[in-house]
Amino acid sequence: MTRITDSKAVTLPVLLTANRLTDGVVLWMAGDTSWTANRNEAVAFTAAGLTVARDQAKADLANQRIISLYEITIDGTGKHSAREQIRAAKGPSIQPLRDQHNQGVSNV
């Protein structure tokens, strides 16, 4: 993977995000145009870097690595929609139920 270094930004920065085909896990494109499940490793691409990133993303779509690719524009306000906050948190905002595993055994 090519390491992308961004020079002067001519457009608003863009995050690339998708889901992993095999399990639906939310992914973010990192600086080396690999995919990471860690939101903190996501890089906002601009200009030439964005073109390379998009090309790599298209290739990853074609190679069955990712699905549901889309871009999030970073407008500098620091605000993210509730949807993106929840996706970045990798889980719901409420505690899901906990299974008391030792209370029974399935018959299957």
Binding site: Q95, L97, R98, Q100, H101, G104
Partner: peptide, 10 residues
């Protein structure tokens, strides 16, 4: 604390 309609396996 329970999402309505959710049930754990146990």
């Amino acid at each position: 604390g329970r999402p309505p309609g959710d049930a754990s396996a146990s």
